[in-house]
Amino acid sequence: MNRLSPKKLLLSKWTAVKPIAKQKHFLVSKVIEPELPNEKLDLIEIEAVYSKKVMQIHWRDLSDSSLWIQGWK
């Protein structure tokens, strides 16, 4: 997998390897900026395509191929 950049994640598409609440396809809907400018970016919001349910995850979790596949499969 290519290296992920948190600045380029917005609107990227992801497939959960194991469905989360019967949802499999997700879109990064928001990159959550840290409160202090010297802190590193950590959280993003992903939105289920079908149900529009939103949840926050650590953006580095998307690098784990046992949890996420880039694109919609």
Score class of each variant (00 low, 15 high):
M1N: 10
R3Q: 09
R3Y: 03
R3W: 00
R3C: 03
L4S: 00
L4G: 01
K8Q: 14
L9F: 07
L9S: 08
L9M: 07
L10S: 01
L11S: 08
L11I: 00
S12K: 07
W14S: 05
W14Q: 10
W14T: 10
T15R: 01
A16L: 02
A16H: 08
V17N: 01
K18R: 12
K18W: 00
K18L: 04
P19M: 09
I20S: 04
A21V: 02
K22I: 01
Q23C: 10
K24D: 10
K24M: 11
K24W: 08
K24N: 08
F26W: 15
V28A: 05
S29K: 03
K30S: 06
V31E: 10
I32F: 07
I32A: 08
I32S: 08
E33L: 11
P34N: 04
P34D: 06
P37T: 11
K40M: 08
K40Y: 07
K40D: 13
D42G: 03
D42M: 14
D42C: 10
D42N: 12
L43A: 14
I46R: 00
I46N: 05
I46H: 05
V49W: 00
Y50G: 12
S51P: 05
K52T: 07
K53W: 02
M55K: 09
Q56I: 13
H58A: 09
H58T: 07
R60H: 09
L62T: 02
S63K: 10
D64A: 09
S66M: 12
Q70W: 06
Q70T: 05
K73G: 06
K73R: 10
